[in-house]
C-alpha cells in the first residue's frame, strides 16, 4: 500500500508531470511565469485548490451521481478557489494584486478538473492526497523553473533581486507572452531529450 502511495506521489513530479508531460494547465503556465514570485504563488495556490478538492471529492464520490459529476466538481473547486482569492487579498495583498484575475481563473485550470475526473473520483482518499501533492509539487517546480529563466533573462533578476549587473541588456521578449512560449518549448524539448537518455 505504501509503495502504491509513493508511486502516486512520484507520478506527478516527473513521469506524468502536468506541464511538461501532460501539457495541461497552460493558461497560468504561460501567463504568470514572468517573475519567480508570481510563478511560486500561482503554484502554491493551485496546489492548495487541487489538494483540498481532491480530498473532498474522493471522500464524497459515492454521493455524487454520475450525470452531475462535472458541475459538482466545478462547484467544489470554485468554492476553494474563492476561498484562496479572499485569503490572498486579505493576507497577501501584493501577491493578490500581481496575480489579479489569474487566481479566479484557477477554477477553469484543466489540471484540477482533470485530476478529479481521472483520479480523485475513482480512488480512495489517501491515494488522492498523494496524487494531489505530487501533481501540485510537479506543477509548482516547473512554474518556478520557467519563471526563474524568464525573470533572469527578461529583467536580470530573481525574486526581484538584481542578479545580472547593469552590463546586462534585458531581453524584454522573455517577460512578454512570446517569451513564455519560447521558454516552455525549449524546456519541454530539453526534458524529452533527458527522458530519452534515461530509457
Amino acid at each position: 500500500m505504501l509503495k502504491r502511495i509513493l508511486y502516486d506521489f512520484k507520478n506527478g513530479l516527473w513521469r506524468e508531470n502536468p506541464i511538461i508531460v501532460l501539457v495541461i494547465g497552460m493558461c497560468p503556465t504561460l501567463a504568470v511565469t514572468n517573475t519567480v514570485q508570481n510563478g511560486l504563488a500561482m503554484g502554491i495556490a493551485t496546489s492548495f485548490v487541487l489538494l483540498s478538492s481532491e480530498i473532498v471529492i474522493s471522500l464524497f464520490k459515492k454521493f455524487i451521481p454520475n450525470n452531475v459529476r462535472i458541475p459538482s466538481f466545478i462547484l467544489i473547486i470554485a468554492t476553494f478557489v474563492t476561498f484562496t482569492d479572499f485569503f490572498l487579498k486579505a493576507f497577501f495583498p501584493d501577491i493578490a494584486t500581481s496575480l489579479s484575475l489569474f487566481i479566479p481563473l484557477i477554477v477553469v485550470n484543466c489540471l484540477i478538473l482533470g485530476r478529479q475526473e481521472a483520479f480523485a473520483s475513482k480512488n480512495p482518499t489517501r491515494r488522492a492526497i498523494a496524487d494531489a501533492l505530487g501533481m501540485g509539487i510537479g506543477f509548482t517546480w516547473v512554474l518556478v523553473l520557467l519563471s526563474a529563466v524568464r525573470e533572469l533573462l527578461g529583467m536580470g533578476s530573481i525574486f526581484g533581486l538584481t542578479i545580472l549587473g547593469s552590463w546586462y541588456q534585458p531581453m524584454v521578449i522573455m517577460i512578454l507572452p512570446a517569451g513564455a512560449f519560447i521558454s516552455l518549448g525549449v524546456l519541454v524539448g530539453f526534458m524529452n531529450v533527458l527522458k530519452r537518455r534515461g530509457n
Binding site: F63, I64, P65, V68, P71, S72, L75, I76, A78, T79, T82, F83, F86, F87, K89, A90, F91, P93
Partner: peptide, 25 residues
C-alpha cells in the same frame, strides 16, 4: 438535490470566509 446541497454548503462556507477576510481587505 445533490447540486443544491453542494451549492448551499459552498455558500455557507464562503459567507464565513467572506466575513472573516473582508475587514482585512
Amino acid at each position: 438535490i445533490t447540486l443544491t446541497v453542494i451549492g448551499i454548503i459552498s455558500a455557507i462556507a464562503l459567507s464565513f470566509v467572506y466575513q472573516w477576510t473582508t475587514p482585512y481587505i
